[in-house]
Design a protein around this nucleic acid. Structure first.
Length: 698
DNA sequence: GAGCACTGC
């Protein structure tokens, strides 16, 4: 583990240098963009033996043999992700036709770890070692013994094979990230373990919350630890020490403090790149422009600064820039959102600036609205950020808050499953045979209200019957779609509404972000380009126009570029469209075109999204039909115009200063009563209020 | 007239 020594320091003053760390820096003497690997000249086999986890090989195999669940706490660089699966393989856990599954929260991780492991074994990827991610299955049902996959893929597999009968061991990696999928798998595996005593589970986490996992999986109630069914093992990492510096006083403005701190580091500290964590794109751009202003003041013969933004809505080409090496006399300063905390790794970082804040989604069960809120980071998250400075050599982390403030932070971030809408989760659990979802054994149970809200929505969509059971065939089919239930409903009804070909495209297009690219220097051209695709009916038909034009121009990257469209995103939409089409064929839903009849499509959208309906209020804003909640049109919508339709349906609400509806289509009010009579059976506001009161929904 | 943490099936 990286050692942390706390020091006091005040932003705006000179950051203190540590004699100890200065010595370490000079003794390492590494180039700033080189990942330090002291074993790079050894063979792959020799490198394997040098990893910290190797010392624990025998013990790990013993524990897996003796306990149903083994929790492995291992820091970055321990080698647990690549080695433990191989130890299991070598010890015979994949004999007799059994397989070993290893899950990762992200697609790239599943692919890179699988690639590394197959290299180490000297075999071709997709044979003994393979991976399975959505749209890319590089595994062989006969030959593959170790399969790396995304956690979401394992949930899908469990719908087909609830006891995971193919596997002898399931290893869940990066469990500390607590994705919704990982949490679902944890609950399901606890259940499976009762029926399959032979199945082994390895829970790998980077943080010290091992006891919580152990208590969850330990079924021993005798009080005698010799009967435990779960065990914990810690594996040391291979990281360099990071000195942590706290702010002496609370920082009134972390955006300004980030700029000041970066400048001070640049002028006073040894070479090494800087990574700063902020909460959103706007803050990132602000800091970048302030730093570029400062960079201009640097004298010609001094070390230069290269300031780069890093956030999710940056085009791929811009994102690539942060990975490029910089010349010796240039210091790279990457200003990033949380994307750099776990999703991407930038080499050469020696200094980290932590604003202490993060933007996270929250769910309000009263309104059913998901929003993004800026909140203080957790201690675990702050440690993760600081750790980003210790991958190349010893580094320094500057926290823009006091040490006292750090100790008041929550130990770990609230798991995603407690902060999200539950409609999809409830649908998936029901499909997995969990009848009583409210009493499902979650490691961290979501608020009951969130679950109730999810159940209500599924009932309204016709996926659940009066007894809360999955309906046949609608509910079962909806669960098979890798989409939010609202889209699944729309697609499943699109056949009988004579527009399934177009509905599939719309559903696919709605899954990708940033379809339209707006380069800051060509704002006007980009806006004009977007206007060419705009449909009067709303955003859904606009997206349909974009996709149809993309196909008409043979999916050419050059055409996308000229029209300010996200080429990679459109390719992804094409993959999703194909997958959805396959599912519709499987359910024998006819593939028919509406032949340009927009009304058919708008009705079909209403059949899926009737719960998200709003009416224009005399104030000029909209109100939800169901509970009179005020809403505005999002500025990115094509319906963000002077003349607004009286009635609309929308995909989602984003909450900033106001509650904005995103992705809208104009509808006729009578369609609501026609297509969702059960939901809108009470016509007047007063009757609606009465119904709400009875449901205890206020 | 004004805004988009990050994944994943």
């Amino acid at each position: 583990m990286a050692t942390h020594t706390s020091k006091f320091w005040k932003p705006g003053s000179e950051p203190p240098g540590s004699t100890l760390s200065e010595e370490r820096v000079s003794s390492e003497g590494q180039g700033s963009s080189v990942v330090y690997n002291p074993y790079r000249n050894l063979s792959l086999e020799q490198q394997r033996l040098k990893l910290p986890v190797f010392q624990h090989r025998t013990n790990i195999l013993y524990l897996v043999e003796s306990y149903q669940t083994v929790i492995v706490v291992g820091e970055t660089g321990s080698g647990k992700s690549t080695q433990i699966p191989q130890y299991l393989l070598e010890a015979g856990w994949a004999a007799e036709g059994y397989m070993i599954a290893v899950t990762q929260p992200r697609r790239v991780a599943a692919v890179t770890v699988a690639t590394r492991v197959s290299e180490e074994r000297g075999r071709m990827l997709g044979q003994e070692v393979g991976y399975t991610i959505r749209f890319d299955d590089v595994s062989d049902p006969e030959a593959t013994r170790v399969k790396f996959m995304t956690d979401g893929m394992l949930v899908r597999e469990m719908m087909q094979d609830p006891l995971l009968s193919k596997y002898s061991v399931v290893m869940l990696d990066e469990v500390h990230e607590r994705t919704i999928h990982t949490d679902i798998i944890l609950g399901l595996l606890k259940k499976i373990q009762k029926k399959r005593k032979d199945l082994r589970l390895i829970v790998a986490s980077a943080t010290m919350d091992a006891e919580e996992f152990k208590d969850f999986f330990n079924t021993n109630e005798t009080g005698d630890s010799r009967n435990d069914t779960a065990a914990v093992l810690s594996v040391e990492g291979r990281m360099f020490p990071v000195d942590v510096h706290y702010s002496l006083d609370p920082v009134p403005n972390y955006v300004k403090a980030t700029v000041e701190t970066a400048i001070k580091i640049h002028h006073n500290e040894k070479p090494g790149d800087i990574l700063a964590f902020l909460t959103g794109m706007e803050e990132v751009e602000q800091v970048v422009s302030l730093l570029i202003e400062e960079a201009r003041k640097i004298p010609r013969d001094s070390q230069k600064m290269m300031v780069l933004p890093m956030h999710g809505s940056l085009p791929a080409s811009e994102q690539m820039k942060v990975f490029q090496r910089t010349p010796n006399n240039v210091r790279k300063i990457v200003v990033a959102t949380n994307i750099a905390e776990a999703s991407i790794t930038i080499s050469g970082i020696v200094y980290v600036i932590d604003s202490g804040f993060v933007k996270l989604p929250a769910f309000n069960p009263k309104t059913g609205i998901e929003s993004l809120v800026i909140v203080p980071v957790s201690q675990a998250s702050a440690e993760q950020r600081a750790g980003r400075a210790g991958r190349v050599r010893s580094g320094k982390a500057y926290r823009l808050y006091t040490e006292e403030a750090f100790h008041t932070l929550a130990p770990s971030t609230v798991p995603e499953i407690q902060r999200a809408g539950m409609a999809s989760v409830v649908l998936q659990l029901k499909a997995l045979g969990i009848d009583n979802v409210v009493r499902f054994n979650f490691l961290s149970p979501p608020p009951a209200q969130n679950m109730v809200r999810g159940v209500e929505l599924l009932y309204a969509l016709g996926a659940l019957d009066d007894n809360g059971r999955l309906t046949n065939p609608l509910g079962y089919r909806m669960a098979e779609f890798p989409l939010h239930p609202l889209y699944a409903k729309m697609l499943l009804i699109s056949g009988e509404m004579d527009c399934s070909e177009e509905a599939v495209i719309i559903a696919a297009m709605m899954q990708i972000q940033n379809v339209f690219i707006t380069p800051p220097k060509q704002k006007i051209q980009a806006t004009n380009a977007k206007r060419r695709f705009s449909a009067l009916e709303g955003d859904h038909l606009t997206m349909l126009n974009v996709y149809l034009a993309f196909v008409q121009h043979n999916k050419r990257p050059k055409w996308c570029h000229e029209n300010f469209l996200n080429y990679k995103g459109l390719c992804r939409a094409s993959d999703i469209k194909d997958q959805m089409t396959r599912l519709l064929k499987k359910f024998k839903i006819p593939l028919v075109s509406c032949e340009g009849d927009a009304e058919k499509l708008r009705r079909c959208l209403t059949a899926g999204f009737f719960a998200n309906a709003a009416k224009l209020h005399y104030s000029g804003e909209y109100r939800t039909v169901r509970d009179d909640h005020p809403l505005s049109v999002h500025p990115t919508s094509v319906l963000y115009t002077e003349t607004r339709p009286q009635w609309v349906i929308f995909n989602e609400i984003v909450q900033t200063n106001k509650d904005y509806m995103r992705d809208l289509t104009a509808i006729q009010p009578e369609w609501l009563y026609e297509l969702a009579p059960h939901y809108y059976q009470y016509g007047t506001d007063r009757e609606l209020a009465a119904k709400r009161a009875r449901l205890g929904d206020r």
